[in-house]
Structures are given as structure tokens and as C-alpha cells.
Design a protein around this nucleic acid. Sequence first.
DNA 1: CACATACCCATTGACGCCCATATAATCCCA
DNA 2: TGGGATTATATGGGCGTCAATGGGTATGTG
Lengths: 153, 153
Amino acid sequence: MDLFVSKFFNKIDKKGRVSLPSSFRNALPKANRNEIILYKSIKSPSIEGCGVGRLKEIAKRINNLDFFSEDYDDFSTSIFSEIVTTNIDKEGRFLIPEELKSYAGIKTEAAFFGQGHFFQIWEPAQGLKNTEVSRKRLLEEKKSLRIILTQQK
Amino acid sequence: MDLFVSKFFNKIDKKGRVSLPSSFRNALPKANRNEIILYKSIKSPSIEGCGVGRLKEIAKRINNLDFFSEDYDDFSTSIFSEIVTTNIDKEGRFLIPEELKSYAGIKTEAAFFGQGHFFQIWEPAQGLKNTEVSRKRLLEEKKSLRIILTQQK
DNA sequence: CACATACCCATTGACGCCCATATAATCCCA
DNA sequence: TGGGATTATATGGGCGTCAATGGGTATGTG
């Protein structure tokens, strides 16, 4: 399974280490299993993460913008300087930078939420609340949930 | 990882030396790990830097501008004539030329901002302010941001 | 000789690597 | 199919290594 799915709650130890859920590690490409990228979510007080391959894809896209335009700078600055890479140790743990932790309000425990091609890290209580809210919104608006779920490839 | 990502704040010592962040050193091609080029950013009071190999890419970009335009001359002159090369010592430190330092208003501390294929060096406070402004501008016209960030594969 | 720069060595703190344990999941065999 | 044995995952802690920083000395160029 090369997708990030399900949710997990892991503890952050005294050294600041936290285990990346095993199934998430397996979702990373075999090539780069010991490095992930993290960045502040744009739409919520959470951290988003994924494998480095995705970053290279983004780099390619930005590189295609007009080199001397303001957009180029904005993207380049907002994305590359805000992204951090962290290494995963042999036990499958990694460090969440202080700045990101405080952005998400994470202290002693981190909640991992699979999002398909990437995942989110939340302060546990906030994360649960968020899933509840977004599920409710989805059902109320009877959005295309049914369509999405029943659509055949 | 062969990209310059994340941000770092390093001190400049009495001799004017400053450490190039470790991950930035690793982003340089193994061939030329002890030399980088620096030049004044055209669009902001900051210094831009990269490995010597990147020069060709810059040349190509400038070459793609209309040869008879003012831009061509301006960019060509402003960038190429201002480029300096500096050596990195065994501890990973280098010297920022006085002219560049004063251009960026850097005194005792330098902020390194990854920009993918190159990086910027800012006076810390100004650099942080710049990323903030950049991010705001992107979020306001959130048109293309989403495309760049969320497009799959 | 004065100044700038490169090389060498030292210190501190952070991080990675290794080993250990407990709980949970899986397997194997009678 | 039950139960013990094996493996995997999450977690804790010791310790060596490396990055960032400071400073002393040699080399060099005007």
C-alpha cells in the first residue's frame, strides 16, 4: 500500500522523538525510506508530511515559472524555506522541529492522519475535532461523497 | 537531497566567518563542495547563492530574455558582473564579502533560506518579514498555490 | 610588516546509532 | 483451534559523532 491511511496516536519522548506509524513508513518509496518532509498546513493548524519525492515534483513545477517574476519568488520562498526535512532513525522515529510543533500546538503526543498521498500531524484533541467537523460538513452538504465512493474506475 | 530547503540562522564570528548549513553543503554537487557563488538578489535586499554549476542555468534563463530588451542588459549586467566566488573551509564556513553584507544589511547573524535550486542569505529580521509577506501574497491570490501544492503525481 | 585568509585544534550541544524492554500482532504446531 | 513461541512496533535511555562556534597559528600578498 503506497498510500497514507488511517489514524494513529504516538507519544513524543523526552528527546522529542516520535514514531512514524509503521504503515506510513511502508507507504514511503523504498528508495527514500529514511527521510520525510514536513511543512505547515496552509489551511489548518497542523503539520503536513510526505516523502521527498513529492518535493522534487514541486521543485520542478516551480522551476518552470518565470524565473524573474514575483510569483517565482513567492512560491520559492513560501515553500522551500518553510519546508523542513527530517531523518527517520532505525527505529522509525523522527524529530518534529520546535517551530512546527508550536504551530500545531503539539506537546507530548502526536496524532497522525492519513490523507492519501500525504499525511497530517495534529495535536490529538484538535485533530479528532477536525475530522468530526469535516465529516459533518461533508454529510450536511451531501457533497459528492456518494459519487466519489461509488464511482468505478 | 539535492535541494536547498528550510531555513537556518547562523552566527558570524569576529573573523567574518559563517557556517553554511550542513544540509546546504550536502545539496552542493559532490564535485564542488568547497566553492559557492554569491550575488546580490535583484528583487530584494538579500544575497543569493548556489553551487558553481548553477551558473549555466542562470545564463540560460537570461539568454531566453529578449536580446534587445532593456531587461536583458540589466539582468545580464546586474547578475554576472556582481557574482563572486568564495571558498568553504574544512569546517564548512565561508566569508561573505563586505559589499554583499552591507547590501543585505547583515551584521552579526545570517539567515539562510532554502529556495530549491539556490538559497538566499538575509539579515534575520528582514528575512522573516519577507517570508511572511510572501506567504500572505500567495494566500490572497491563492489561485496557483493550490495547483502547485496539491496536484498529484 | 600589516592585513587578510587558510589551516589546525578545542568546546559544546544536538542528533544519530545502538541496545533494551514491553506490549501487541502473527505464526506454528500439536 | 488453542496456546506457546516468534516477530514487529512503540517506547526508553546510553553514548559516540557531527555540526556550529571560538580561537591560535601559519601562510601569503601587498
